[in-house]
């Protein structure tokens, strides 16, 4: 097991390096660069001083060849946690990202748990009772969940929340709590705001996971080892929980790998519609405005999340399945 994890970690480091190079190349790709944008904005009367430009040029080696620029960039991140400077926001990228990251992670995690908690029992039910009326109903709802664009769902839920529950909608806090210090009331306010984005972002994923769980379990339910378990005298509930579900879980947990990054990047539109303080909208504007270090930071972050997600799902799989662990 330790050997298995160590191998994955080494592969992850190599992968990280390649990704950082790719991310750097990507942020260098658009025509024009950081300096020219700065100079242009100076001419528009921005408060960027000559010294500041000189400092940034030195700091990031902007007059140096690309590989030195890359080294400055990546060493800044690795050694000082300095992701560079966002021209648009005139703040260090790290600050901007960390600001939003907490809420993003919170929302992502809540959504993931929501999706799992809903899809697992429903998926199991609809597989065990295949072609029953209940199965048809959840399958129908599932497909609707998959088909509705989530920004539309967001608008509808916002309307319902506002019209019938009198909630302040949009964002993660009511206006009076936005800048207030943390308290139980604020936590409650957060929770009452969380459900809309959770459902909106989670709906499609939940529907998808229901389908995955149903298909996996259907594959397993007719396997000979289930018959063996039945022949042992186990009760139906016990044997289904112990054997086929256990094995059907494999593809289920491996979804965690792509759930992490897609929760961050996939929720951009929803975050814009719902005015959520997550990284999604920030990433979008940074790409639109060629805010290179900010965009690069995000690309790097998403990649790290992907890798972390993959490794987490690999480890979960190895715990679940000895065939992977003992390869």
């Amino acid at each position: 097991m330790i050997h298995f994890i160590a191998k994955r970690l080494v592969a992850m480091v190599v992968m990280m390096f390649l990704i950082s190079v790719a991310a750097f190349v990507i942020i260098q790709l658009p025509p024009g660069d950081f300096l020219t944008t700065l100079v242009a904005s100076m001419q528009q009367g921005s408060d960027v001083s000559q010294e500041q430009i000189a400092f940034l040029t030195r700091r990031f080696g902007l007059d140096q060849p690309l590989y030195i620029q890359y080294w400055r960039w990546i060493s800044g991140i690795l050694l000082e946690g300095d992701f560079g400077y966002s021209f648009q926001w005139k703040r260090p990228v790290a600050e901007l990202i960390w600001d939003q990251l907490g809420f993003t992670m919170l929302l992502s995690l809540a959504t993931l748990l929501f999706a799992w908690a809903i899809s697992f029992p429903i998926g199991v039910y609809s597989a065990v009772k295949q072609y029953s009326i209940g199965d048809y109903i959840v399958t129908f709802i599932g497909f609707i969940g998959l088909a509705i664009p989530n920004f539309l769902l967001a608008l509808v839920l916002m309307y319902i929340g506002f019209r019938y529950f009198g909630q302040s909608v949009g964002g993660l806090f009511s206006p009076e709590y936005r800048t207030a210090p943390w308290s139980w009331a604020k936590v409650w306010d957060l929770i009452s705001h969380l459900w809309i984005p959770m459902i909106v972002i989670g709906a499609a994923r939940t529907a998808e996971l229901i389908r995955i769980m149903r298909a996996n379990l259907l594959d397993e339910l007719n396997k000979p080892y289930v018959t063996t378990a039945r022949a042992k005298g186990l009760s139906e509930v016990r044997l289904i929980l112990k054997y086929p579900i256990r094995i059907a879980l494999n593809p289920f947990v491996s979804t965690v790998g792509w759930v992490l990054p897609s929760l961050v990047s996939g929720a951009v539109i929803v975050s814009v519609v719902l005015n959520l303080p997550t990284v999604g909208p920030l990433l979008l504007t940074s790409l639109q405005s060629q805010d290179m270090y900010l965009a690069g930071g995000f690309i790097l972050l998403l990649s790290v999340l992907t890798l972390v997600g993959t490794i987490v799902s690999d480890i979960l799989l190895a715990i679940l399945d000895p065939r992977i662990r003992l390869e």
């Binding site: 022949a231 042992k232 054997y243 399945d321």
Partner: peptide, 23 residues
């Protein structure tokens, strides 16, 4: 269920697929 396994048990054809791979 009390009869299965306790009084009458069964040996299946393919031991590889007839046993759970993860237990």
């Amino acid at each position: 269920r009390a009869i299965r396994g306790k009084y009458i048990s069964m040996i299946f054809q393919e031991p590889m697929t007839s046993m759970s791979p993860v237990h």
